[in-house]
Design a protein around this nucleic acid. Structure first.
Length: 275
DNA sequence: ATGCCCACGACACGTGGA
């Protein structure tokens, strides 16, 4: 089962790019962020026509998350618990009903947090504290769980093109990174870094100053796997193709491939073992 | 050193993004 995450920067502006990518790659599950659409205006029909079920959690103009799935969606839960006064649509989770290959998936749009001398930064940190608490509780279920989305966190200096340029930014501040590590240390596996050793691989390139052409990017879109999901991890790749198209989002998709429970992670050549 | 570009809402430019 392929599970992707993509910050589309407006589902309305990006619909042709999204439909083209879904048609070409056919991921079973897709988490979208920054849909920037109220639920009544979400282009459901076009996406359903490609064989997807939808769960959406939107608001006017800003934020907005969605989960697309070729399997039925069950137990859909919009909103990150922990603050009933938070009206920003940044979290949505659902159970993907794929029988023995079922998995719980969350679509996450973590606050940017800039500028760091303003309430936006404290909101980011408080939101991360709530995410840590919710993730810790979710682990108690001992289910396969994938927390996928735009974390607005550059985990390490090698995950951006110029660490000096990003020093002091909300995406690299120690307060942000330490909370991301706390999340990982609960027992989550960061899929891409687990399977790739190379640095300077990115999921976001700014629209400005020719960042895409110069490969001035940052790696801020992540998939975090519970132990039961990590045991099934077969692959994780960044698909840079959509970022190079016209009318592109500034983010590009990243995906994991999960096998069935108990499926071998690598094929074994029994003949050579016998020899 | 600062802004570059893009999307939104709803018409002009302010807000937000990262």
């Amino acid at each position: 089962m392929k599970i992707a995450t993509w910050n589309v920067n407006s589902i309305k502006a990006r619909l042709p790019r999204v439909l083209e990518w879904l048609g070409a790659e056919s991921p079973e599950v897709v988490c979208l962020q920054e849909t920037k659409s109220i639920d009544d205006n979400f282009p459901r029909l076009e996406i359903e026509a490609l064989g997807y079920n939808l769960a959406i959690h939107g608001q006017k103009t800003y934020n907005g998350v969605a989960i697309l799935s070729k399997y039925p969606l069950e137990d859909v839960r919009p909103g990150l618990p922990g603050d009933g006064s938070d009206e920003q649509a940044r979290y949505l989770e659902a159970w993907i009903d794929a029988g023995d290959e079922g998995v719980r998936v969350a679509s996450i749009y973590l606050p940017n947090g800039n500028p760091t001398d303003a309430p936006k930064f404290s909101y980011k940190l408080a939101w991360m504290d709530r995410l840590v608490a919710h993730a810790a509780a979710a682990l108690q279920a001992e289910e396969p769980l994938v927390l996928a989305g735009d974390y607005n966190i550059i985990p390490a200096d090698g995950d951006c093109y110029d660490a000096a340029a990003w020093e002091g930014d909300a995406l690299t501040r120690p307060e942000s990174r330490s909370r991301f590590r706390t999340l990982l240390n609960l027992g989550f596996t960061e899929a891409w870094r687990t399977l790739h050793r190379e640095i300077h691989s990115y999921t976001f390139w700014d629209y400005q100053a020719g960042a895409w052409q110069k490969d001035n990017g940052v790696r801020i879109d992540h998939l975090l796997l519970s132990p039961q999901a990590a045991d099934r991890l077969l692959a994780c790749e960044i698909d840079k193709k959509p970022r190079g198209k016209s009318k592109a989002s500034d983010h590009t998709p990243i995906w994991v491939e999960l096998g069935a429970p108990g499926e071998p992670l690598v094929s074994v050549d029994k003949g050579s073992i016998a020899a």
